[in-house]
Design a protein around this nucleic acid. Structure first.
Lengths: 132, 132
DNA sequence: ATGGGTGCAAATCCTTTGCATCTGC
DNA sequence: GCAGATGCAAAGGATTTGCACCCAT
């Protein structure tokens, strides 16, 4: 499957997988440029979209500002800073009732493909910044 | 608190509260125009941002496309259609371990202000559309 | 007269698209 | 030579900002 990807696409995926944060398209571009000189940002966007369509990566948006990309495919939860837009992986599993989940999907007529728990709040560095 | 709001801001809040869906800024604008003729979309954006900053409303973004606004302040979960961007309220509570939640907040050093469960998938009308 | 709120238009930011070129087959 | 991938620049959509104006204080 990954063999089908272009060299650029492989490089993008590589960057995403190597990154612990959830980079924006611009950040992916800045990073992938080191490996694939001359690559354009349009290509990065094109690749990110294709990877997302094939469910090889996930996309998260905050409202305004840029979307963030995540190569991690296994289910995990996120903490979102409402101040700076940072998206953090939650390193522990937040158990929830799968029954209630299925019931919720039924109630909304959604064909569920994934789910996550999202925590909203103020991240560490923004807390620090506030104190000043 | 709400007495401090301008007439325009009150109208925007009114529209959001009356709406069962989660309108985009443009949709709020279209609606609020009926009541406050001559209001500009910039004002709507300004007000939405202020209300969000004061935690009187919530903002949800999908990645690309427009953000969606929600006047509902009590905790509830959402189902998100990855195809058309629709955001639906989940009418049932999805129980989860509050302990695990607190643990997650601790682990990410987030000062949690709220949380939600998010279900991703394909909504009813997009399922129909597929069949064609 | 002063300050906050506002409409309008221009600016900005993020993302997509059009098109000509390049690539590997 | 062809199909798909790409770079560049321009277009597009969403949101923000600059600025002059208006209104209540």
């Amino acid at each position: 499957m990954e063999d089908l990807l272009s060299a650029n696409a492989r490089a993008v995926l590589e960057v995403l997988r190597a990154s612990k944060s959830h980079p924006t398209a611009q950040e992916v571009y800045d990073e992938v440029r080191h490996v694939r000189r001359g690559i354009g940002i349009a290509t990065v966007y094109r690749i990110l979209r294709q990877l997302a369509e094939q469910d090889m990566i996930k996309v998260w948006g905050s409202g305004s500002g840029s979307a963030r990309y995540d190569a991690c495919t296994h289910q995990h939860d996120h903490a979102f800073c409402t101040e700076c837009g940072t998206l953090l992986d939650v390193p522990v599993a937040i158990e929830l009732s799968l029954e209630a989940l299925a019931e919720a999907a039924r109630a909304t007529s959604i064909e569920m493909s994934s789910y996550e728990v999202r925590i909203y709040g103020c991240c560490n560095s923004c807390q620090e910044r506030r104190k000043v």
